[in-house]
Design a binder for these strands. Structure first.
Lengths: 250, 250
DNA sequence: CGAGGGTTTGAAGTGCATCAAATAGTGTGG
DNA sequence: CCACACTATTTGATGCACTTCAAACCCTCG
């Protein structure tokens, strides 16, 4: 699992990505501490970051790449909880329970991570209402997304779930057609959407027939976005575009 | 939907339930404010508390009874997000988005609610790290539960999901057998577990055959808890008993 | 060029949903 | 306290969606 140049830590980092809403409004002194104690690491695809029940020391922020969060049963069946990219964080559960991870995490592509020591973060959270509020907001948002995920898996068909996934990757520029690039391999997308790779393949074909999309490898051309919306969103409680969700993803 | 004596508000309440971890560590002055501005209301079964996209004014805490949280699609299909009882809160999303509810809420039984004004809460959250931390903890826990829910719905059979539901209602007293009472009607349990009532009924029969349980109305006698655990938890990534989950539920 | 993983396709099976109808259970007014 | 009305629950029959197992294909990368 471990890859050649994993954990190429640089003890200090020069800058936090400025887009990190999570730390907006934090004091300069805390930011300085962060920069001193956070570390960056580079990983190839397939690197196991931690496994469920591991003792947790850091919260991780994805700087670039993709990270798969998952749980697995005794018999090896795997359930993908989420797949994260830039500016998303994970491992935060350990702040509030007894300090162990609740799921496993693995890179799904070449990935750069920022590790932030939990003890530093916890201390600051207990003192700094701004940071806490940022976190609260992020957690509430995550929770909402999970709730929608549950909803989707129970009332949408596999083809509709794929349609929804595609639409969330689509820029909202008012154009009739759009072209997108699947962010990671189809097997992982399938797992992320709670279906088998075979089912994914077949459901995508069905979607092609029904909604005028073209698929070539990992490139998807949506001829008529509205047609896809009609097909996809009829079984969804939200109306398209799904305003608030994953606005910063992909 | 509205029932006779809904909204029997008493402008002030005499005491917050002392079990409310959420407000542990808050200043006496804030608690006093809370008592002045929070209100209690009594509702019969079937009272619609708010609907998705309603403007939100309060966070609600269940004092007694049961509340169903759900979303529905255009065609009327309903997805149950959660069913809450004592000491659980809902409506908190509105603190962090533009102040509208993300789901609908309805009482599933005779229920007493405590309503806490969002603006008061938000102000305090932005000043009081202790309160924020309590909330963070609660949200992280909720998120974890949602993640497990997603896992369960994708890899457990209907009978196993029911078994899991039963086990979570079971007191962990080391006895071989146990007797429990279903907290709300089977149709709602089915919806809560993401299946049809017919499927619930059949899956429960299957469970009876496989694990020596007896069902009479809403009373369930589990002859051999371990047998049920074996049947149920084999497809779960957690080992029984599911330590941290819903420890205070039902 | 060949190896290996990702992806597609085929055939068959299974679990759950759906529709329909019977039965049990609960609260109501008489 | 009983009969009725209405809802909750069960049961049966059938269909469809997704899974599973197997095999072929494709594509990338050494």
């Amino acid at each position: 699992m471990s890859t050649p140049h994993s954990k190429e830590n640089t003890a200090t980092i020069t800058a936090l990505p400025k887009e990190l809403e999570l730390f907006q409004g934090c004091s300069p002194s805390f930011i300085k501490q962060l920069k001193q104690s956070a570390s960056r690491s580079h990983h190839d695809k397939g690197h196991l970051i931690f496994v469920s029940d591991d003792e947790a020391h850091s919260l991780y922020i994805v700087i670039s790449g993709w990270v798969k969060l998952f749980r697995e049963t005794l018999d090896g069946t795997e359930a993908v909880i989420d797949v994260l990219n830039d500016n998303h964080f994970f491992g935060e559960h350990a702040l509030f329970n007894n300090g162990v991870h609740e799921y496993s995490a693995e890179t799904a592509d070449k990935t750069v991570l920022l590790s932030i020591p939990l003890n530093l973060l916890k201390r600051e959270l207990q003192q700094n209402p701004d940071l806490s509020f940022n976190f609260l907001k992020a957690l509430a948002q995550k929770q909402h997304i999970k709730e929608r995920e549950i909803e989707q898996r129970s009332i949408q068909s596999t083809a509709q779930r794929i349609g929804c996934f595609l639409l969330r990757l689509t820029k909202q520029d008012g154009k009739k057609s759009a072209q997108i690039h699947l962010p990671y391999d189809k097997t992982l997308i399938a797992a992320r959407l709670g279906m088998q790779p075979e089912t994914f393949s077949r459901a995508l074909s069905k979607l092609k027939q029904s909604t005028n999309i073209e698929v070539r490898g990992s490139t998807v051309k949506i001829e008529d976005v509205e047609k896809l919306v009609n097909y996809t969103c009829s079984m969804c409680s939200h109306s398209f575009p799904c305003e608030d969700l994953e606005k910063d993803k992909a």
